[in-house]
Design a protein around this nucleic acid. Structure first.
Lengths: 257, 257
DNA sequence: TCTATATGTTCCGTTTATCGGAATGTTTTG
DNA sequence: CAAAACATTCCGATAAACGGAACATATAGA
């Protein structure tokens, strides 16, 4: 019963407009933003005026089109202290090439997992369950499950409390999550067989630095037929562990040097 | 007559809080943000809740501290399509080493100039008129003046209209700006002798790509004693033009390759 | 372990910024 | 030069934001 909740409040509206502008690096006219955002012309105009005041947006002198400003660029530089997406790129591509499946990289953020990178392999049926930028409650989906299972008991409890409703949206009960956790403890990887999208399965391993900090999870998704125990154990998991270790090392290096 | 205008409205408040968080990449507690921002606890809490909803901010699970989220990182990547600050770094450092003075790089954004990079030379008296991130109305200060003077007549008129009040804040009249423009046309560089900060002078040249697009201005600032016509013409300007040409080439390469 | 203090979260009546429709300017287009 | 599209301002009604105070939770000290 997903009520189509209308966006309300200035900040969500501003975020929506920034989102629209993000998809058009070369700028958009007021009318275009109105069309994309479904807000009234006046509202868009006023929000844009506010965003201009704070430097997040500016208006091209000739075209009058609105574009994202440098201020946002500066903010984001502190938002991602180490650019894991960039560091991991090569390893992700190696995995995708080797396995021919789709490889995802997710990081934890609060009680959510965010997909920050994706690489697709050569296999003709592609499993694109997650787009870059998508978020899931920790524990739902292979990558988010690997992250969840790699956290302390206290953290896991906090997560369950926070994500109660969100998890329900995905139809995942606490019992199922507990079962998944138990499996992870035995196999040392997270698995999700067709729970989110029927016909597709995914497995995932965590990326943990030398100091024990959980930084990400590497996941591989494919159609069920390609996810045989045989292939998982002999091909996928070894390769994933290798890349996870490599990535963890590179992150350690970055944060020291 | 600078009335201390209290920040009002959700968007400016949100921007202020994001600013505060930008200065603390490792997160801040609610109380700390309240202290830094001068908003009531309730307001900060509510704004943070909004920012969490849109993914700009998240709360660390254990420490409960608030931090900037990945969403902002992604937004900023489109905000700066070519990272001029990064590309220019070496050249800026070369200039600072050669001249021993302070080198600034500013880019135009709407009717403003934003300083996006700075390099300091060895000379013991440092001229730090601009910080990275500072904005000036186009035409005020050497860098912003070089940008202004490199624009079309139509653009310059638009700028004057938009920046009328803002320029007045700096005590720059339209007549003075017109005079500066005339000088630029003759000398091919912008100069600002002690107008903004007494005792310091600055000169600037524009950075223009092969296709004629104005992308930035390189400026050098120093105490008046170091800004002799002799030194400007034989040392500074040639070096600046060289680096400006180099930078323009590198930007062209970036945007094609 | 229990108390005290600091910190974080919710409640609620008041105020004020936000809302969108309509009117007014402004620029592009035929 | 007229008409259409587009951008900006105005305005009354309303809903969202506001902050103080009450409540809950976490941290530190006895």
């Amino acid at each position: 019963m997903t009520e189509i909740a209308a966006i309300t409040g200035s900040i969500p509206r501003a975020a929506r407009i920034i989102d629209v502008l993000t998809k058009a690096p070369d700028g958009l006219s007021l009318a275009q933003i109105v069309a994309e955002s479904d807000f009234s012309k006046t509202t868009v105009f006023r929000v844009l005026a506010n965003l201009q005041d704070v430097g997040y947006v500016f208006q091209d002198l000739e075209s009058r089109q609105y574009r994202l400003g440098q201020k946002l660029a500066r903010i984001s530089q502190t938002a991602c202290r180490t650019d894991i997406a960039a560091i991991s790129k090569r390893g992700m591509q190696r995995l995708a090439a080797l396995t021919e499946d789709t490889v995802f990289l997710s990081i934890p953020e609060g009680a959510a997992a965010i997909c920050i990178s994706r690489a697709t392999g050569a296999f003709p049926i592609r499993t694109l369950t997650l787009n870059v930028g998508d978020t899931r409650p920790l524990g739902v989906g292979a990558g988010a499950l690997a992250l969840y299972c790699s956290m302390s008991r206290k953290e896991r409890e906090t997560i369950q409390r926070i994500n109660k409703n969100w998890m329900a949206d995905y139809g995942v009960s606490e019992a199922e999550l507990a079962a998944d956790y138990a499996v992870f403890q035995k196999t040392a990887y997270a698995a999700n067989f067709g729970r989110i999208v029927a016909g597709t399965s995914a497995i995932s391993v965590p990326v943990i630095t030398g100091k024990g900090r959980l930084v990400a999870a590497i996941a591989i998704g494919a159609i069920d037929a390609r996810m045989t125990p045989e292939r998982i154990n002999t091909v996928l998991i070894p390769a994933m562990w290798q890349e996870a270790t490599l990535l963890a090392q590179r992150i350690d290096e970055m944060e020291q040097g």
